[in-house]
Design a protein around this nucleic acid. Structure first.
Lengths: 334, 334
DNA sequence: AATATTTGAATTAACGTTAATCTTGACATA
DNA sequence: TATGTCAAGATTAACGTTAATTCAAATATT
């Protein structure tokens, strides 16, 4: 039989309530009793039942974290940031993967609500044209979208300035004289793609140039996608002198293709990634990229969520973290 | 006010119990009643309280997952495997990070027990000389160690044949004639280091050669460690013609150092990693490495755990997944 | 017609905890 | 002495479920 408060109460002769209060360090208990009960609890290997406790005490100290892909190094950095702050604040994480499906995402949110999470941090699968607006708007607990947003719910997001980031990439490339820039963009249903495309367009606009749609690829974002896209461009005889990538992983594939086609980076082609994943500085040549504060993104998301949990009337507002273009060896500028 | 079974009972005129049975699709309910109650539940936006339910029904359908480092791509692949099988079996994951500390690990296990997890999958921080043997041996729920083991609890582990894997690396290198092999090994407190070192030694033994301890480095396993270790070897004038690494991440750092020192891979130095992370095939040159079935490791761990949960009398036994040396461009052999 | 079975549901008692309200005895105060 | 205060603890009633038991009416069986 499991040791419960009742067991300890019987063993010590005190009431269940007194035992409960001792173990919660509640007041109005003599020191003698407290020591006695605590030692008995220890002796019996008492493990508190957090679920039973949550029945009277609505604070479950649990949050739900839903990511697009647990194995993606971008998300895992973000999740580590969340975990760090959650740990500091005494929260536990229920975790799930939406597999880039809105249905799955909704299902997970419901499941987690059932477990009485006090809030959510979500990396939504679909942002642009999401069908989940109504669903989220009606959620009974606070929620923060990390790194992405859902149309109409922007104020629930912690973002990293995607538009500014991609704009700085294209400002650099266009100013350096490039006129044939391959742009390996991301999936169209996520907000980041939309914002970065916008940044790209603004940079072209600043230079009074119209972007050429033949140079823009919308890709899922895996290494093979980058590899194939560059192969395709080369095979079609599309001339280019620079490649801007939606993420470092695409850049990894792109560089592989360039290498196989005997194109030198950065002499023949300059390449710029996005995200600044750990490995990008160790690539050969090391990858110029836009640094996204992934760990901080997670940490801040949890900070904000905690704020809203403790303060249900607080208004939500978009947080936008700064990004920074980092020059390494895959560009001429250093 | 939250909608509970009571709310629905009042709204429909049936008893709480009847409502409960309808929503659990229990028997002995007329179809008419069932439809009525279900539609009312839907209408009122009823969200079942899984915690309250767990008070009577001991199946919480939750497991605890504790990893050494959430942001490490090796672990995140494993976790994805766990998540996939967990999802299939209807389990949710409570997740935490032991930060390579046994104290933190123990704390997390207790916390999760409090939440009534039905079992654990743990990537323990310390395996060799762990102080947690007694603690784990007394755990009241089944637990599986993924990818590592704790001395005396080997039967709770799903492993990948570390000894065989590293042995195959050294068999290749020694057979190819290398006699000065830098071995960038891992942290001494984890079982993988111990087993791979053993594999290395067996290969040397097969060739009747005594390994030279000046060539063996025990490192934490970050890219900088590999980078520094190779720099150090070069600066000390230690001659070498091959590098075997405890993981791909070390190899990444090692290759960077070789590159900076104008040593060609694989012509001057052959390099072999371990783990076969996604990016290793995209490195320049692509990295020869030992493939570890990371996703499968997680998936199998969850399969086994579920088995033990459903079958408490089942004996634990070590599972050892096969590994395979993959030749790419960082070795002469292809 | 008397009895047994079946169906559909209500009642009751938990699960382990916590919060609110009582109780008791010791001591202090006027 | 009568009354008040306080400390230390006990009692009771929840929280939202589920399982076991009970009940009443309808139907079937002899």
């Amino acid at each position: 039989m499991r040791t419960t408060l009742k067991t300890i109460a019987k063993a010590t002769g005190f009431s269940i309530n007194t035992v409960s209060r001792v173990l919660r360090n509640d007041t109005r208990i003599s020191n003698e009793t407290s020591v006695l009960i605590k030692s008995k609890a220890e002796e019996l290997g008492y493990i508190p039942d957090a679920l039973a406790s949550s029945m009277r005490n609505p604070r479950t100290k649990t949050i739900g974290v839903i990511s697009a892909d647990l194995s993606n190094p971008f998300f895992s950095e973000v999740i580590k940031g969340i975990e760090e702050k959650a740990e500091e604040s005494g929260y536990q994480m229920l975790m799930g993967n939406n597999e880039e499906s809105e249905e799955k995402e909704k299902h997970l949110v419901k499941l987690f609500l059932s477990r009485k999470v006090e809030g959510f941090i979500i990396m939504p699968s679909h942002g642009k044209g999401s069908s989940l607006y109504d669903f989220y708007a009606a959620l009974p607990v606070p929620y923060i979208f990390a790194g992405r947003y859902i149309d109409g719910l922007e104020n629930h997001s912690v973002l990293h300035n995607d538009e500014e980031g991609e704009k700085s990439v294209f400002e650099y490339l266009l100013s350096a004289g490039h006129r044939n820039i391959l742009y390996l963009s991301g999936p169209e249903h996520i907000s980041n793609t939309f914002d970065r495309d916008m940044g790209m367009r603004k940079a072209y606009e600043n230079h009074s140039i119209a972007p050429d749609s033949r140079y823009i690829f919308h890709l899922p974002g895996h290494p093979e996608d980058g590899y194939q896209a560059v192969n395709t461009a080369i095979n079609k005889g599309l001339p280019f002198t620079a490649i801007a990538c939606f993420n470092d992983i695409l850049a990894m594939g792109a560089m592989k293709s360039l290498q196989e086609n005997d194109l030198s980076v950065p002499r023949d082609v300059e390449v710029i990634g996005y995200d600044n994943l750990l490995f990008s500085q160790f690539m050969q040549p090391s990858l110029s990229t836009v640094d996204v504060p992934k760990h901080r993104l997670g940490y801040v998301a949890m900070e904000i969520l905690e704020n809203h949990i403790n303060n249900p009337d607080l208004d939500f507002r978009t947080e936008n973290l700064p990004v920074r273009l980092i020059f390494r060896d895959s560009t001429q500028e250093r």
